[in-house]
């Protein structure tokens, strides 16, 4: 009776990067969130104002609070609210990193179709992350 199966190495590497990266992301987010809500780091948008924006359209929040678009938040990373983006960016970026490890693995196996699919996926994610695709929101 089989009890375990062999998992491809590239898949294990992908899973490990994602697993440890996720825990690192959680740790960073917990720490930065404590810095934020404890007031140790002054937020860019005051906490009492944030709740007023919750029920409003995105455009009003962005314009009213002066929220930067794209990667503009990097300039505000010293603020209590925007420092939280570090953990989010790490988590969102992990997928790109994981896919990058798949490319050499598939090329080495001469799995051309899957290597091409992986390269396209990396390009799609980089395009999404780049901030090039920025338009107005309702």
């Amino acid at each position: 009776m089989p009890t375990e199966m062999e998992t491809p190495k590239e898949q294990v590497l992908y899973a490990n990067i994602l697993f440890y990266g996720c825990w690192l992301g959680i740790l960073i987010m917990v720490v930065t969130y404590i810095l934020y809500i404890s007031g140790l780091l002054t937020p860019y948008v005051p906490l009492e104002k944030i709740t007023q924006y919750w029920s409003q359209p995105v455009s009003q929040y962005v314009e009213g609070a002066g929220i930067p678009l794209g990667w503009g938040w990097v300039a505000l990373v010293g603020k209590g609210d925007f420092i939280n983006f570090l953990g989010i960016v790490l988590l969102a970026g992990l997928t790109i990193l994981c896919f990058l490890t798949l490319i050499p693995a598939y090329l080495a196996q001469k799995e051309w179709v899957y290597a091409a699919i992986t390269i396209v996926e990396v390009l799609v994610l980089i395009l999404a992350a780049s901030g090039v695709l920025v338009t107005g929101a309702h």
Binding site: M29, W54, Y61, P68, A92, A128, G131, T135
Partner: peptide, 17 residues
């Protein structure tokens, strides 16, 4: 999709984290 929303300023850390 999350990258798009983030780049559009739609992520409110107080709720998101």
């Amino acid at each position: 999709a999350a990258w798009v929303y983030m780049n559009q300023g739609c992520v409110i850390p107080l709720m998101a984290i």
